[in-house]
Design a protein around this nucleic acid. Sequence first.
DNA 1: AGATTACATAGATGTTTGTCTATGTTTCCC
DNA 2: GGGAAACATAGACAAACATCTATGTAATCT
Lengths: 114, 114
Amino acid sequence: MTTLTITPVDVSTCAPSGLAAPIGRPEAEQLAALLKAISDPTRIQLISYINASNNSEACVCNLTEPLALTQPTVSHHLKVLTDAGLIEREKRGTWVWYTVNQDRWKQIAKLLEI
Amino acid sequence: MTTLTITPVDVSTCAPSGLAAPIGRPEAEQLAALLKAISDPTRIQLISYINASNNSEACVCNLTEPLALTQPTVSHHLKVLTDAGLIEREKRGTWVWYTVNQDRWKQIAKLLEI
DNA sequence: AGATTACATAGATGTTTGTCTATGTTTCCC
DNA sequence: GGGAAACATAGACAAACATCTATGTAATCT
């Protein structure tokens, strides 16, 4: 199990009425941490590439070349996304397969509601 | 008129099919810049405070105290949000009133579709 | 006109972050 | 068991960023 550096956001407690009502500091920090994980061009591309892959899953070695980045850099970004609960990690033999957590993305849309 | 440091994202050209298909670097950078503007706890609180204000608008002097920040810091964040097209600025006399650009927020939900 | 109020801009500073190289760990295969 | 392949972790470094103090600008009021 991976250590989570970002506490997974619970939609039911974090900004329960979206952005329409005043948000306290802790809730704002949680939401900001979640959004920050997506706010990087490389990570946005990673998400789209995983989604567009066969069976909607991809391993690290499939992602380094199209992004023209080193393997550790890609691993780093995938860890950020995993810690935020935006993608999921599954080890099968030597490979590690990543998939997008679809529910998580629907949550985000809810959190941004006004 | 304020100088825009972030090119406003055109939904029709930026990630036209959401995050389901591979996204090129320029489009990913545009989307990341937009999301980065929201990915800060202070700015998230600002948005919620503006929305919760009378007439859904607020001036800088109304926002410094509840956030416990200096006026220049609040002005800085409001500029980031304005440049990203997320809020709008209207000067009336000595005061400057900020409102949330509702359409812009709906665009973001579209951009994040999977 | 002078003083005051509201806001923006400039510049400085400590922290965060994206990327790299180097190395460790685990699994597979011969 | 030894080598190779896939991935993670550690450490370093430059760029970006959030905040502050100091100062500039514009509008109001007496």
